[in-house]
């Protein structure tokens, strides 16, 4: 099976003054299509940095990373933006919606960037919002949605362009337990039913309990990468 994400000896070192701080050290990792993988580890273990490099948000110091067969290492800013737009969906820790756009417009916005025709993008936006359980709330702006609902819009926005993979960075960190459970259930269900690939950086044991592949990082290195058959069902 061809990996959606492939990292080879991926390394990131931050330079702070004269000090070199390694964040990710020579990581090799493949994410397969249909994976519902969690990336866990203590703070500073490098999971967000790794996620950012996979998402083309940050550049590796050395090594290779490719997404859906495209190497990101030598791409310029605009080409990386295009890769993110076409192949990667993002869900962030904080509710990262455009505050002046409604839920539907937030989803539509990314489709607009992809030049999807107006009727098609409206239909698609409504479809994914229904998928994440927000039918009837299309016209609400983020300020009129709860935290959980905003994260659902963020998931809908990530799913809108039908990406190769959704990268989520601590998506439940700001949610209460019930809402967090609902969001995890939603993502897990999307993975099971629609085959959407997820890579989720998280501390949250509830998220980890749902994962069918669990990766642990410590000090910038992968210390555990296991496939699990006992994940909580969606």
């Amino acid at each position: 099976m061809i990996a959606i994400v492939s990292c080879r000896t991926l390394t990131k070192t931050y330079v702070q003054g004269t000090l070199e701080v390694p964040a990710v050290r020579s990581v090799d990792l493949d994410i397969e299509p249909g994976d519902f993988a969690t990336l866990a580890g203590p703070s500073g273990s490098g999971k967000t940095t790794l996620l950012n490099m996979i998402g083309g948000l940050d550049r590796p110091t050395s090594g290779e990373v490719s997404v859906d067969g495209v190497s990101l290492t030598k791409l310029d800013k605009n080409a990386l933006a295009d890769i993110r737009l076409h192949k990667i969906g993002f869900v962030f820790q904080t509710y990262s919606l455009v505050p002046v756009l409604s839920a539907e417009e937030n989803v539509e916005f990314i489709l607009r960037l992809l030049d999807v025709p107006v009727r098609e993008r409206r239909t698609r936006a409504r479809e994914v919002l229904r998928q994440v359980g927000l039918a009837g709330m299309e016209d609400r702006r983020p300020a009129r949605l709860s935290g959980g609902q905003q994260q659902r819009v963020a998931v809908a926005r990530a799913l809108g362009p039908k990406p190769a993979i959704v990268l989520a960075d601590e998506p439940t960190a700001n949610l209460d337990s019930k809402t967090a459970e609902e969001l995890i259930g939603l993502m897990s269900n999307l993975n099971t039913v629609s085959g959407i690939t997820f890579l989720i950086a998280t501390h949250d044991s509830r998220v980890i309990a749902h994962s069918r592949r669990h990766i642990e990082m410590t000090d910038g290195r992968i210390t555990l990468d296991e496939r699990r058959n006992n994940a909580v069902a969606a």
């Binding site: 933006a81 295009d82 993002f90 455009v98």
Partner: peptide, 15 residues
């Protein structure tokens, strides 16, 4: 931060 998010979801810096 918001611009960072827009960049992350694929909006070009020039746009």
């Amino acid at each position: 931060r918001e611009f960072g998010v827009l960049l992350a979801i694929g909006m070009r810096p020039s746009v």
